[in-house]
């Protein structure tokens, strides 16, 4: 089992400035799943109850000179502490930028590259070698090596399980609505946390999104209308236009044009932290049978309105049992 690659500048930038800060908010540890074509960060795919997130990168988006081999079809997966990886990358970035200031020659970046590889080492006071992901920066006069402890690589059966979970998580909801302003929504949801724990999310084919918290003493909600709809859509009957938000949503549910699920406010708020990855748009949808709330983030090729197929990020929020609230 071998893995060795160089992180490109773009890759470092994507991970250090955008994705790892977002993933760190979702959960402390995640699976890093490396294949011949993709590097995938997965949260909570095997152990059910938290926010599931999948951040997938084509190898070219992050690495060059990428070498991977394993007896399991060149697939390697392990768990890693996101915050440690982020810290390691941050410090290497600060080191290499220091060197970058010293070394003016443009061809010097080849000596100044960031290598990342899987190693087994004997830690101090241990008798058994442990696996590490090593991040190595070679500067002008010195090298900095950082070892990030990781779990034992997953067994063949576990990798199969992870791959299956990943495939299951790709199901798209039939209707997706585009969320207007993630940061504003985040602000609102953060304030909602004081009022209640359970969030009702309603999405309709008319382009309505409603999030509300409701207890016996208070109900507080935000409603967005006329959002861009992807997938199945419908026109709202004219007679509904002027009804209250609540009666419109119950009418559209009875017509089969809307769906509602309950999720944890905390989970919802965590998933909103994905805005740290600076997506160009975000879409929400409810999976068939209301099995989960899906959030899909889209990234454009810089300077265009074309979706960048080499990066993808989506989250799935577990739905609460209506009885348990």
């Amino acid at each position: 089992m071998k893995f060795k690659a160089f992180l490109t500048d773009n890759g470092v930038n994507l991970l250090e400035k955008r994705f790892l800060p977002a993933l760190d908010k979702i959960g402390k540890t995640c699976h890093l799943y490396l294949t011949r074509d993709n590097a995938i960060f997965l949260h909570n795919l095997l152990n059910g109850d938290g926010v599931q997130s999948v951040a997938q990168f084509r190898i070219q988006a992050l690495f060059d000179d990428y070498r991977i081999s394993s007896q399991n079809d060149d697939r390697i997966a392990f768990t890693i502490d996101v915050s440690l990886l982020l810290r390691a990358l941050r410090s290497t970035v600060s080191i290499s930028s220091e060197y970058g200031a010293d070394v003016a020659a443009p061809d010097s970046d080849s000596s100044n590259r960031l290598q990342i590889k899987l190693v087994k080492k004997l830690p101090p006071n241990c008798t058994v070698a442990m696996p590490f992901l090593t991040v190595e920066t070679r500067g002008y006069k010195s090298a900095v090596i950082q070892d990030i402890p990781i779990s034992k690589p997953l067994s063949r059966a576990q990798v199969v399980e992870l791959q299956n979970a990943l495939e299951m998580a790709q199901d798209l909801p039939q209707t997706l609505v585009q969320v207007p302003d993630l940061i504003q929504l985040q602000n609102f949801v953060d304030r909602m946390k004081n009022v209640g724990d359970v969030l009702n999310v309603f999405i309709s084919k008319y382009g309505d999104l409603r999030v509300d918290v409701s207890t016996t003493l208070i109900s507080l909600g935000a409603e967005f209308r006329k959002l861009l709809v992807i997938g199945e859509q419908a026109n709202e009957p004219a007679e509904d236009q002027n009804l209250s938000a609540r009666s419109r949503s119950s009418k559209s549910i009875s017509r089969g044009d809307g769906q509602t699920v309950q999720v944890s406010v905390k989970h919802f708020s965590k998933s909103l932290q994905c805005h740290l990855s600076k997506p160009d748009c975000a879409f929400y949808g409810i999976a068939p049978q209301g099995s989960c709330l899906t959030m899909i983030f889209q990234f454009f090729i810089p300077g265009s309105r074309q979706s960048d197929k080499s990066i993808s990020l989506h989250c799935r929020l577990p739905v609460l049992d209506p009885g348990s609230s």
Partner: peptide
């Protein structure tokens, strides 16, 4: 098209 409502 974007509103907040509450009932106390």
């Amino acid at each position: 098209d974007a509103s907040i409502c509450a009932e106390i």
